[in-house]
Amino acid sequence: MARVRRWWGRALGSEGHERSTVLLIAKGTLAATIAWVISYHLLRAESPAFAPFSAVLIMQVTVYQSLLQSSRYVGAVVAGVAVQAALGFLVGPEVLTFALVAVVALTIGRWPALGSQGSQVATAAFFAFSTYVSATSALDKITQLGQIILLVLIGCGIGVLVNVTVLPPLRYRSAEHGIRTLAHALCDLVSDIYPALRERGLDDERTGRWRVRAEQTGELVTQARTGLRMARESLHYNPRRLFRRGSAHTHFEGYAEVLEALERTLRQVAALTRSLDKWSADEDRYRYGAFLASYADFLESLSRITRVFADLDEDRLGDQTAQLHQLADEAQNFRRRLAGQAERDDLPLTDPGRPYGVLVIEAARLMEEFQYTCDVLQHHAGR
């Protein structure tokens, strides 16, 4: 019960998965009830469940998906009923007819244009066959088959109408969430690396864990791209965007560029962890300890930037970009100190058996990506 109360508290208290779930259930219930009343009480349909079933089936997360999936679903149902009607009237209500209907319907269902609704071709054909064999006359058969299509159209229309008019989902925050998640992962990883460099506490187990964590961020990138796609998609045909005209929430070019920059940064950090993982020359850590301390200072400055990314909020983007600009300048200074330290220590930068050359290059590349990301956010904040 405590978990249930917390779940409902989150649903009522703030936007998120819980509130979206409650809203989707409520809208689905409303659409199904309206469709049932129309099909059963007003039309007196023989198979009234087709309407509420259709209304719930196409109640997608976004308005765009509702329209797309409803058009595909209607096309699949019409195709299935048409196959049954053609073969039923030509061959008759025989077992062979059912087999032919199944073969043709399943074949049409493989058509890529129908997408995930392809399986509904066979489903509609089978229901149509059941209706066809139970009808007593040719006129009754035609009427029942046509009624199936009518009920599906009613259900889809009601589902789309409810989704458009009752708090249509506007998922612009999905883009922010994906970037925040990536930034959190990057911040956590960098924040684990720089203290170990400062303390010269590098060992195979620790560097191996860093390498694995860096290589496992691909799934987070995929999730972030999905969130960005949903944010863009939720604006299509959504009437709520009219009340946000001129808002930065209706533009996602900046988020897309930030996401790409963070993805490149994660690849650079992964390359850094691979270099550290291959390094086993223990004595070098003490001989060039000043360089490692400078590198730790540089990575710590980058971690402060990632903390801002992890708290990205478009409503506060102006203040955050000013903070990022200051932090980027500080990180540039630490990178220059790092390069100067490498020169003073006369590091073996060209020795392929030691990581110093790669580390210096990776520092420059990381700084470029962070600077670019900060510049992108500053550019879009100034729009």
Rank of each mutant, 00 (worst) to 15 (best):
83 V>Y: 07
77 V>K: 02
101 V>M: 12
138 A>G: 01
100 L>M: 03
95 V>I: 02
84 Q>C: 15
160 V>A: 08
122 A>P: 02
94 E>K: 08
90 L>F: 12
74 V>L: 13
104 V>C: 04
124 A>Y: 13
137 S>W: 06
136 T>R: 14
114 L>I: 09
76 A>Y: 10
88 G>L: 15
157 G>V: 05
141 K>D: 00
153 L>G: 06
120 Q>W: 15
161 L>K: 04
120 Q>G: 02
123 T>I: 15
132 Y>H: 11
131 T>G: 15
89 F>S: 12
77 V>S: 04
129 F>W: 14
102 A>T: 13
156 C>P: 01
152 V>R: 07
75 G>D: 04
149 I>R: 07
133 V>P: 05
159 G>F: 07
154 I>K: 05
93 P>R: 11
99 A>K: 00
77 V>T: 15
151 L>Y: 07
147 Q>A: 13
139 L>G: 10
118 G>H: 12
135 A>Y: 04
153 L>Y: 09
137 S>R: 07
83 V>R: 05
145 L>G: 02
70 S>L: 04
151 L>T: 00
82 A>G: 14
69 Q>F: 10
149 I>E: 07
103 V>P: 05
116 S>Q: 13
135 A>F: 05
102 A>R: 01
130 S>C: 03
150 L>E: 10
133 V>E: 07
159 G>N: 09
92 G>K: 12
138 A>T: 14
117 Q>N: 13
114 L>N: 05
94 E>P: 00
81 V>A: 12
159 G>Q: 01
144 Q>V: 04
